[in-house]
Design a protein around this nucleic acid. Structure first.
Lengths: 192, 192
DNA sequence: TCTAATATTCAACACTCTGTGTATTTTTGT
DNA sequence: ACAAAAATACACAGAGTGTTGAATATTAGA
């Protein structure tokens, strides 16, 4: 069951393609193994050689996508905090731009996506913990809600950007999200 | 099928209770009509007299919860923008405090909840459109992302607050969310 | 090229849940 | 008390599931 075998790669690929096309038509909970394998022209029993069920397929896709994502982001060094923040955010938008086909999948799950949960807990918190250390912030209650507020806001920006067709450049979006995070939305819009 | 009949009220109530208890044990997609009616000690056929399927039950619960929510919020008049914002947010937290049993249900769906989607599109946008009118803000792109960022942040704060056991008072949370919205999280924490 | 491994196919299996229907019993509002 | 309505018990076909075992096809490596 190693992925060296061409048959395995081919089977998984066609299953993913069919899964993506089904997901464009109906919500995740309405997709059955039966119709997925029919569309993929794969024997139903074969599906169970690779995945436990539909949710397992979804999880594996998200997991691999996340690993690629981490590989992109991990190359970052820390020098200036603000510059790094904008660069990271820009790269996040860039990454999704280069993975449009999975972007559709991701945004279909909204914020219940495992992918976004991982981004939330690992990448963002990693960066923000550093941030917290530097600024020596202590009030853990406010800090918790700060994390929730900012991360949810950014994740939703990513999804909206995807759903609106990725009109703005990753640089624009990276800069905008940086300003939202640092100065707050109100300030950016001149409402403060 | 009016709700004047005591049997109807009783049946729906026990179905909702059982649904809530099942939702505490497993995700929504794993809950079947069969096990729900068994736990509720209701004939399975009876379920179909009231609801189309499990998702219909969920939607109706959220719909009714949302209607109560709107009734609470709708009493607000507009005088000072900032004061109203804090009051509204405080009342939102207060509302969830008085509906703990459904708070669990709501936060189980995360942000995919219909309830939160409605709060998002109706209540928040209503208030923020007024806000936009007053300040005469024109850049629609930034405005869109501003909406997404702030609303998602607030919704997530609500969920986190529920999941952490509603330790802080609604007044505290209302004030904190107001500051996040107006001045941005970074400013509040002294990071700006 | 040959072979051993293994991925896939195919048919079949028992099983669960669904949605619906019908006849019967119980409860309700008036 | 009576008619209407709701809940029940039961049956039914249909769909999907997860799993077998044997046959077939494809692969990697010698």
């Amino acid at each position: 069951m190693t992925d060296k075998d061409r048959r395995i790669r081919k089977t998984r690929q066609v299953l993913r393609q069919s899964f993506a096309s089904l997901l464009a038509e109906k919500p995740l909970e309405d997709i059955t193994v039966k119709e997925l394998t029919e569309r993929a022209d794969i024997n139903r029993g074969t599906f169970y050689c690779h995945y436990k069920d539909i949710y397992d397929l979804k999880d594996q896709i998200e997991r691999e996508l996340f690993d690629e994502f981490v590989a992109v982001i991990d190359g970052y060094g820390v020098d200036n905090l603000r510059r790094e923040l904008r660069s990271v955010m820009t790269d996040v938008f860039r990454f999704l731009q280069h993975n449009k086909e999975f972007g559709t999948i991701i945004s279909a799950y909204k914020t219940d996506s495992l992918f976004f949960a991982w981004v939330r807990s690992e990448i963002f918190r990693r960066g923000l913990s550093e941030w917290q250390r530097i600024y020596g912030f202590q009030d853990s209650i406010q800090w918790d809600y700060y994390l929730d507020f900012v991360v949810a806001g950014c994740v939703t920006m990513l999804q909206s950007w995807i759903q609106k067709g990725m009109r703005e450049s990753p640089e624009e979006m990276g800069a905008l999200s940086e300003r939202f995070i640092l100065y707050g939305p109100g300030e950016v819009l001149g409402l403060g």
